[in-house]
Design a protein around this nucleic acid. Structure first.
Lengths: 245, 245
DNA sequence: CATAACGAACATGCTCTATGTTTGAAATCT
DNA sequence: AGATTTCAAACATAGAGCATGTTCGTTATG
C-alpha cells in the first residue's frame, strides 16, 4: 500500500499513510525505513518521496514489484521455448530472474548475467548447470558488466540468449538505459545462435538511451497482452516471431 | 550435537541420538533429514552415517562447522594485514569466507573465488567493491574453477591474494585436494603481488593430492596455535612470515 | 525558541516454527 | 510370507520471534 501511494502521489507524509493504512505512525516510520533500505522509495523528514524522476530508469526494487503476474507468464513461455540440454545465456532484469527460477528445475546449462540469478541457480543444487560470467555488478540490480563480462561472453557460444530490454520498437530497435548494459546485450546477441526477447508490453514502442541493435537480430519476442498492436505488427513484419501470453 | 556424534562414532542410530539429546525420535529423524540435505551426513535406515571416508576431502557443510573460532581469529588477522583501497583476490574455502565477511565492511576491491563469498559481498551494499570472476561452481563448495576463472585471473593483477589450502608443508609446498582448484590457486598466486595464506594448524605438515607451488611463493602465513612448531620454523626458515593468532 | 518529527526502549499480541504424539504405510529381518 | 522395526503424514501444542503500539527523551526545522 505504501509503495503504491508513493508511486501515485509522488510524495506522502507519515500522517497520511497512518490514516490510509490504519497503522500507527511509528509502524509507518519503520516500514518507510525498510522500504528505503530496499531502494523502493526515498525517506524525507515527515514522510517519503518517490525515487522516480524524469526519464530515469525506475530502481530495481520498485520494478520487481510491478506486473509480477505478467512476468511469470512471460517467463513460463520463454522456458517452454528452451529444450532440455541447451546452453542458455540469461540477461539481467526482473523478467529474466523469473526465467532463472524456472530453468533451475530443468536440465540445461545457464549463464546468468546478474547476481540475483546466480544466487537463485547456485544456492540450491538442481538439475541445471550454472556457469558464472565475470564482471562488475552494478548497484542493486546486480547486473554484471564491464570488460570481464564481455570477455566471458566472447569466449563462449550459446544455443539461446534470453535478453530483457528497456525499450523495443521496430523503428528504433532494442535499447537499454545503461551504456554498459547495452554493450553486454550486444555481446550476448553475438554469442547466441537464437535470441529470445522477454519484455512486457510497456517496453514496446519505447526507446531508451543506449542502442543495442536492430530488431532483425531478434528471433522471438515474448510479451503480454498489453503490447501495442501496431508495434507487434511492425515487429512481425520485420521477421520476429511474437508470442503473446 | 548430532553432527559431532556422527563425526566421532562414524555411525549412530536414531535411538542413540534420541537418548543423547533428550529429544524424541521423530525430531531426530527430522533433524537428520535436514542435515543430510545440507550435506553434513548421510541418512541410512535407522540412523545416520558420516560422509567422511579415507583420505577424501570432508564435505563443505561439515568443514564449515569446525574450528569456527580459530577461523574467525585467522580471518581477523588477515583482514588487518590488508590496507584500505587494496585490490584483493579471495580464494574459496571456509576460512576465506570469514575474511569476506570482514572485508565487506572495508573500502577495498574484492574478487572472491567462491559463490558463497560473492553472495556475502553482493547481497547487501557495503563499502567494499565486488568483482566477479567467471567460472563453473564446483558442487556445494561453490568454488569457481575452469578456463573462465583462469582467464579472469590472467586479465587482472591484485595487490594481495588471500589463499586457503588443504595442505601446506615446507618440504612439499602448498597442496589442494582438487586439480582444478590447484590450477586456480596457481593462477591466483601469479596474479597477486603479495600472497597471504590462511590455514588453521591442521593443514600444516599435511600434503594433499594436487600440487600448487613451493612455499617460497608465499609471503605471509596466518595460522593458529595448533600449528606444529617444527613446520612453522621450517616455513620461517624458507622466508615466509608466520603470524600465529 | 517552539513545535513537529524522530528514535530508542519496553510491553503486548500474533504468527510461525519446532517439537511430540499418534497412526498407518513401508522396509527390513527371520 | 509374517513379524518387527523404521518411517512419514497428520494433528496438537508450546515456545520463540516478529510486528505493532505506546511512551519518553532527543533531534531537526521553521
Amino acid at each position: 500500500m505504501i509503495a503504491q501511494a508513493v508511486r501515485e502521489s509522488g510524495s506522502v507524509t507519515v500522517q497520511e499513510l497512518a490514516e490510509l493504512t490504519g497503522a500507527s505512525e511509528m509502524t509507518i516510520r519503520r516500514d518507510l525505513d525498510a522500504l528505503a533500505a530496499q531502494g523502493v522509495l526515498e525517506r524525507v523528514r515527515g514522510g517519503a518521496r518517490t525515487l522516480l524522476l524524469r526519464g530515469e530508469e525506475p530502481p530495481f526494487a520498485l520494478r520487481a514489484r510491478e506486473a509480477v503476474e505478467a512476468k511469470r507468464r512471460i517467463a513460463a513461455e520463454v522456458s517452454s521455448l528452451i529444450a532440455d540440454g541447451e546452453t542458455v545465456l540469461l540477461d539481467s532484469g526482473t523478467t529474466c530472474l523469473e526465467v532463472a527460477r524456472l530453468l533451475h528445475q530443468r536440465p540445461v546449462t545457464v549463464m546468468p548475467l546478474s547476481l540475483q540469478a546466480i544466487h537463485m541457480l547456485g544456492d540450491s543444487p538442481g538439475p541445471a548447470t550454472l556457469m558464472v560470467p565475470g564482471g562488475r555488478p552494478r548497484a542493486a540490480e546486480g547486473a554484471l558488466t564491464g570488460p570481464l563480462t564481455l570477455a566471458s561472453l566472447s569466449a563462449l557460444r550459446f544455443d539461446t540468449g534470453v535478453v530483457g530490454c528497456c525499450g523495443l520498437s521496430a523503428a528504433e530497435g532494442l535499447t537499454a538505459y545503461d551504456l554498459d548494459d547495452a554493450a553486454v546485450k550486444k555481446a550476448s546477441i553475438t554469442s547466441s545462435r537464437r535470441i529470445i526477447v522477454a519484455a512486457d508490453g510497456s517496453k514496446l514502442g519505447r526507446t531508451a538511451f543506449a542502442y543495442v541493435g536492430p530488431t532483425t537480430l531478434l528471433h522471438t519476442l515474448v510479451t503480454d497482452t498489453t503490447a501495442p498492436a501496431d508495434e507487434v505488427a511492425a515487429l512481425e513484419g520485420a521477421g520476429t516471431v511474437v508470442k503473446i501470453v
